[in-house]
């Protein structure tokens, strides 16, 4: 049984993960809740971690695997109201996850669990030549700009600048974040990094980002992008395979 202070914040987590995956197996143990899975095409990976400390209350015995249909969970979470607390309660007898919104009253959905097991995927240990921290909404806006021009985007780090660019058949777009840019928090690089990525996936991954959030990007040349940010007490990490010329 786990209680989160803001159901509405957690809704964003579920929305974002549901953009990429159809189902997920949550692992709940005394450290908190984690989950990791690749999308069916193996282009993207989502890793979710909600540390025990993010919960207002958290009770567990042993370790539980909770298989969830994300489309159904998303629909339920969309009913969260702004002051609702969220209680997630595993009913092992009925094989259901109770999703409870608590405010002046108490609304309970019982979500049927899926018979899936947790994936054994470990994050690959990749050495990245460049790490960029920037304001999440600035990154999201640059991706939306690029989306007007093409279906892919090039993310580059060169000369202590982070660049988002794309070329269409007729039109081009580029956004530069250098040390003078208030959106750029930090940039560490050993040499250049340049990789191209599918924009649809990237836009799905940044869906939950809002003003004030900070994203951390790990980049290389023709390497997967690693993207991290925190949302509603959850740490989200995404990997996205590059497009290669």
């Amino acid at each position: 049984r786990a209680t989160l202070e803001s159901a509405k914040e957690f809704k964003k987590v579920v929305d974002t993960v549901a953009q990429i995956l159809d189902e997920i197996c949550l692992i709940a143990n005394e450290d908190g809740i984690t989950a990791r899975a690749m999308d069916p095409s193996h282009v993207a990976l989502v890793s979710l971690e909600i540390p025990r400390l993010s919960f207002e209350d958290y009770e567990i015995e042993g370790e539980k695997e909770i298989g969830i249909d994300l489309e159904a969970f998303k629909k339920i979470m969309n009913r969260a109201k702004s002051k609702d607390k969220l209680i997630l309660e595993l009913d092992e007898e009925k094989n259901k996850l109770n999703v409870i919104f608590e405010n002046s009253g108490r609304r309970k959905f019982s979500l049927a669990l899926l018979d899936i097991s947790a994936s054994e995927i470990k994050m690959p240990e990749i050495e990245y030549p460049a790490v960029v921290m920037l304001k999440g909404d600035a990154f999201k806006e640059a991706l939306k700009d690029a989306d007007l021009i093409s279906d892919y985007v090039i993310l580059k780090v060169e000369d202590n600048k982070f660049i988002v660019e794309t070329k269409g058949e007729l039109n081009d777009f580029s956004a530069e974040f250098d040390e003078d840019s208030s959106a750029l928090i930090s940039i560490e690089s050993q040499g250049h990094a340049k990789s191209a990525f599918n924009l649809e996936y990237l836009l799905d991954m940044v869906k939950g980002i809002k003003a004030g959030d900070i994203v951390k990007l790990y980049l290389g040349t023709d390497m997967p992008l690693k993207l991290e940010y925190s949302l509603g007490g959850a740490n989200l990490t995404f990997l996205l395979a590059p497009r290669i010329e």
Binding site: H42, A196, P224, A241, R243, I244
Partner: peptide, 12 residues
């Protein structure tokens, strides 16, 4: 034409 890679290549 650019080719979309999968993550499998990078998991080795």
């Amino acid at each position: 034409k650019p080719k979309q890679m999968t993550l499998d290549v990078f998991f080795k």
